[in-house]
Every structure is written in C-alpha cells, then in structure tokens.
Computed example of a mutant assay.
Amino acid sequence: MVHLDPASAVFKAMLEGWETQQRARFLKAGGTIKPRLDLVRRFAEYTNQYPWQWEPAEVEAFIVSLSIAPSTARNYQNCLRMFCEFVTDARYGWPAKCLDIFGAVPRQILHEANTISHVTDYEGNPGRRPLSYDEVQALFDASDGRVEEIQSRHRKGALTAMRDSAMLKVIYAFGLRRQEAVGLDVADWRHNPKVPAFGRFGGVFVRWGKSTNGSPPRRRTVFTVAEFDWIVPVMEHYLEEVRPLLAPGKHPAMWVTERCGRISRRRLNRTFGLVRDLAGLPSELDLHALRHSFVTHLVEFDYPEKFVQDQCGHSWGSTTAIYTGVSDEYRNRLVQRALRERHPDLWKDQP
C-alpha cells in the first residue's frame, strides 16, 4: 500500500512507536506520555517540518519563543531530546527507512551547547516557602472562622467547610501531597501501640505516594508526632460528627463531597487558595507549602533527619533538605547549644 502522504504517515508511526516504548516502561499515559507527545507535535507544527528535517537552530528558536521558566524549558528540551534519541536509534529502523523514502535521516538536535544545565537543587518560585508557626495558626483560624461565619448566616456549606478545615489540618499534620490527601480512605488510619493515647489515629497509611520511573505509587506509614497531637480530637470530631452528615453511604473516601464522591485535587487547591486569602497570607503560598512546613517544623522539633525523611516518603535525604527552611531562631538555638557544650564556663551565669 502506498500512502498519499508518506511524510505524515511516517511521523505518525514514529509517535506511535515512541508511545509504545514508553508504555513498555509503565509510564503514566495521561501524566507523562501524552504531554510528551503533545510537545513533539507542537514543535513539529512550529517548524512546519518533520523530524528528518529538523535542525538545532529550530529547537533553539522554539524554546526562545516561549515565555516559560528555566525548569520548564529544560523539561521541554529533555522531552525533545528523548524523542530524537528514539528516532535516531538504528534498532528501531527509522534512520534507514527515512533515508530510503526521503533521502535524509533524523539527527539529534539538542546537545550540551543549546540545553539548560541543572546546577541548583531548587529552581521553583522563591516566593514558595514553609509557613511560619503564626502563619499556620492564621490559616487554621481562617478555616475555622469560615465555618462560624456560614453558621451565623444560616447558609448552606457549614458541613463542607468543617470538612475542609479538618482536611487542611491533616495535610499539615502528616505532610501529605495532594494525591495522597485525596486518596485517603477511612480505613487508612492506624493504631500505634507505642502511643495508645492516640487511639486509632496513631498514624496514617499513605497508599498513593509519589511514583517514579513507571513504578506503582509508593506506600508509607506516617506517625502522629507528639507536637501534632491536636489532630486526634480534630479527626474524632470529623469522623464521628461531620462525615456521617455528608451521607457518604459505603463510600470509603475520607474526604467526600456533597454528592457522595471523592474530593478532587482541583477542589483541594481551590479550598486552600480560598482559606489562604481569608487569612491574608501571600498568594505565592500554595497547598504544597503545608508539606514544606511539616518538614521544617519536624526539623525544628529536633526529630532525627532519617525520621523526617521517612515521614515524608523521600528516597534521599537531599530531597528532604530542599523542603527545609528553618527559622533564624532555630539556627540561633543550635549555635547557642553548640557554644554551651564547647565552652560551658562562658555560660555559667546565664539561664
């Protein structure tokens, strides 16, 4: 069979082959593969050319034309580089086929001289940071105040506002990511025999941790720490008095909507933004800032680094360090402690 448009047919087959290669690695179809394919199509549309015609200057012009952050630009470059690696790999036969049909072969158009180097651990918005203790309190006060305001006006929404308040407190008290929070079920709470006073809320079993390189979601148990023991009565109140009134039926989700469904990540983001604005906090702070706050405050409570790392579900301690933004007061305490240990005579007359 002869294609009327062999160029578009070959390009389509290249994309399908690359998609199959990624599916064989069990990468996420919607979260990883589709955005990559869309980017390659977008670049092809920008150049109005096919992969065997692409030149380095074209990808450079494409990146320059975009108003994106350096980290996003590097992700785009890595994606296009991986596609070029696929179509230039002789094991898949595309160089020979393109030479036979078009008289040209694909080549790698991204190299060290036209790609962004990864030189810092964190490249995000500098405005994103852990919340201070006062800011966390202000956030929770605004969340609770929202419930009281709705109740005082005799309006609908008091139950969902109570749910939202408990949900934000759980995210902070256990350092949860968005997907981990929305994926929580009632059955995920765990007893901790070492702390019987916490009852069924001695810890939470996280089943929807961040997956990497096509692996399934990683699991972990996050223990309730003594400094966050206030979460126990919060959860008792929510499960015994609030959630039943939402009429969840047999739905297993911890956070259910008015229509007996699981709350979405988008709604979770919207809820945080609403409460953040009510608290008068900077707009740069997002939901993930609560996870950064959880890590930072555990460090300031003097928990061991490995314990904090395990609580977060990080494979590497360096990742946990990126999340940490301890206060000047904490660092001063460390310096003072070290000086007391090294020069105890200098501190005899001071408390």
Rank of each mutant, 00 (worst) to 15 (best):
D5F: 13
A7W: 02
A13Y: 01
G30P: 00
P35Y: 13
R41K: 14
R41T: 09
R42N: 14
Y46I: 00
T47Y: 02
W54A: 12
A57G: 00
A57L: 10
I63V: 13
V64Q: 11
S65A: 14
L66R: 15
S71H: 02
Y76R: 15
Q77E: 12
N78Y: 07
C79Y: 05
C79T: 15
R81G: 03
M82G: 10
E85L: 13
Y92E: 08
W94R: 02
I101H: 05
I101W: 10
G103M: 03
V105L: 03
H111V: 07
I116L: 15
T120I: 08
D121N: 13
Y122C: 07
P130W: 01
S132L: 10
Y133V: 13
Q137Y: 04
L139K: 06
D144Y: 13
G145N: 06
V147N: 04
I150W: 04
S152F: 06
R153V: 00
K156E: 06
A158F: 11
L159I: 02
K169Y: 01
V170F: 06
A173S: 15
R177G: 08
R178D: 11
G183F: 06
D185Y: 06
V186F: 04
R190A: 08
V195E: 10
G203A: 02
F205C: 09
V206T: 11
V206Q: 12
V206I: 15
W208Q: 12
S211A: 15
N213C: 05
G214D: 05
P217H: 08
R218G: 09
R218L: 08
T224P: 03
L239K: 07
E241H: 15
V242E: 05
R243V: 02
P244F: 14
L245K: 15
L245A: 12
G249K: 08
K250H: 11
V256E: 07
V256A: 11
T257H: 04
E258N: 14
C260R: 15
R262L: 07
R267K: 05
R270A: 14
F272R: 09
F272V: 05
L274F: 04
V275N: 04
R276N: 07
L278K: 14
A279Q: 09
G280D: 06
G280S: 08
S283K: 14
E284R: 11
D286A: 11
L290M: 12
H292K: 08
S293Y: 08
V299M: 15
E300H: 09
E300K: 05
D302V: 02
K306M: 07
V308I: 12
D310I: 07
C312Y: 02
W316Q: 14
S318F: 03
T320V: 06
V326S: 02
Y330N: 06
R331P: 01
R331G: 03
N332E: 15
Q336A: 13
R337Y: 00
E341G: 03
Q350P: 00
